[in-house]
Amino acid sequence: MANHDIAYTLDVQGISCPANAVRVKAAVGELKDGELLEVLVDEGEAVLRVARTLKDSGYRIVKVEPREQGLSVIVSKK
């Protein structure tokens, strides 16, 4: 992503719910202020579950974009 400085990329594609969301939550927790995490996630139920966990935990979703397969979700701590 050109406009974003990604610190880490986490691929949870193919990982079922809720394990995908648990991994995302753990990874966001490791971020320092101002750092961005890119999450690669499947469409459908998976992105729903990940978004729900991020919202419940109070994290910010910066940008969501479709990829050839699945989605790129860029997340920051707040």
């Binding site: 978004a51 979703i61 910066v62 969501v64």
Partner: peptide, 10 residues
């Protein structure tokens, strides 16, 4: 709205 685009695939 922060124009993140999450709602479109949701």
């Amino acid at each position: 709205c922060t124009d993140c685009g999450l709602c479109i695939p949701l």
